[in-house]
């Protein structure tokens, strides 16, 4: 009894005001703009004033093909980048936790692009993806394959950027998977040692037991994909035309053009996309999460 009491009084010695500095900073600089964005997205907003116009901005986003393509592209971009990272990073992580030579070196090499400015990577790859003289096409044609207009072809540009995004983000996904693999108790591998080769191990031990890492990778890269801006901006600027525009690039373009209400509506749409897609996904993953 007396122990319980002392614990209780101890709990209250952790002061609640310790929340305040963080919550005030977060409240002013994040929550306040987020909440006010709902109102401003319903206005025609210039540098001088904001006039309420109802859902006109949203209607524009749904009807104007220049804007609605952003919705579609954002979704495609997020699904493809997170899907590819999830699929490619697991075998890479298996490789980098195996007995392969130079694995310390490979770990650094795979992680290195994470450190570099995304704008720098975008510029480098857009040089390498130039139609005739770019390194990738020169390499393709030297082994007899046709050259590809990676960024100039409107139906291809977005997918070319997706590839570079996966290249840059693979390091994070791989490190998360490596953590998951290294946490698998050795007994599980021993159990299948007798009757299985590598494939059995991969399929029946690694894949099920790194499930939590898989969830983390999917969620993180999916949110990252929905919010991605730098790489697309550096590589295509949303072009050719507006073929590779995503919500974030449209938000920026409308902001630059002075259409603040429209820009903010784009922001709210992005918010809604994240809420509608990510929260249910996360809730589903949380339910299925393993206690290892």
């Amino acid at each position: 009894m007396s122990k319980k009491q002392s614990n209780k009084s101890l709990i209250s010695s952790y002061p609640n005001w310790f929340y305040l500095p963080a919550i005030i900073t977060f409240g002013i600089f994040f929550i306040l703009p987020t909440i006010s964005s709902f109102y401003y997205s319903l206005t025609r907003w210039t540098i001088f004033d904001a006039t309420f116009i109802g859902f006109e901005n949203y209607e524009a986003f749904l009807s104007d093909p220049m804007l609605s393509i952003g919705l579609k592209n954002t979704f495609i971009y997020a699904v493809l980048t997170s899907g590819l990272k999830t699929i490619i990073a697991l075998p890479v992580a298996v490789l980098l936790t195996s007995g392969i030579r130079f694995k310390g070196f490979y770990r650094s090499v795979v992680f290195f692009p994470v450190l570099i400015s995304t704008i720098a990577i975008g510029i480098t790859f857009s040089m390498m993806m130039q139609p005739h003289t770019g390194l990738i096409n020169v390499a393709l044609s030297s082994i007899g394959l046709p050259m590809v207009d990676w960024l100039g072809n409107p139906s291809l540009a977005l997918y070319s950027v997706v590839l570079v995004d996966v290249w840059q983000g693979l390091g994070i996904a791989t490190v998360i998977y490596m953590g998951g693999i290294l946490a698998i108790p050795q007994d599980y591998f021993d159990a299948v040692k007798l009757d299985g080769g590598f494939w059995i191990k991969f399929r029946h031990v690694i894949i099920p037991l790194v499930q939590n890492s898989t969830f983390t990778v999917i969620i993180l890269s999916f949110i990252g994909g929905l919010r991605s801006f730098d790489l697309i901006w550096a590589m295509t600027g949303g072009g050719p035309g507006f073929a590779s525009d995503v919500l974030t690039s449209i938000i920026y373009k409308q902001y630059q053009a002075g259409f603040y209400g429209l820009s903010t509506a784009g922001n709210v749409i992005l918010f809604l996309m994240v809420t509608i897609l990510v929260f249910p996904l996360k809730a589903y993953f949380d339910r299925k999460e393993l206690d290892v």
Partner: peptide, 29 residues
């Protein structure tokens, strides 16, 4: 404080802050 107190207020505080991991910042506002 959030981890040590681990009460209702702590849960709410965490939920508010963690939402910031997902929600994109509203740039123009």
């Amino acid at each position: 404080v959030a981890q040590r107190r681990n009460d209702k207020l702590a849960t709410i505080m965490m939920a508010v802050l963690v939402a910031g991991l997902m929600i994109p910042p509203a740039v123009v506002p």
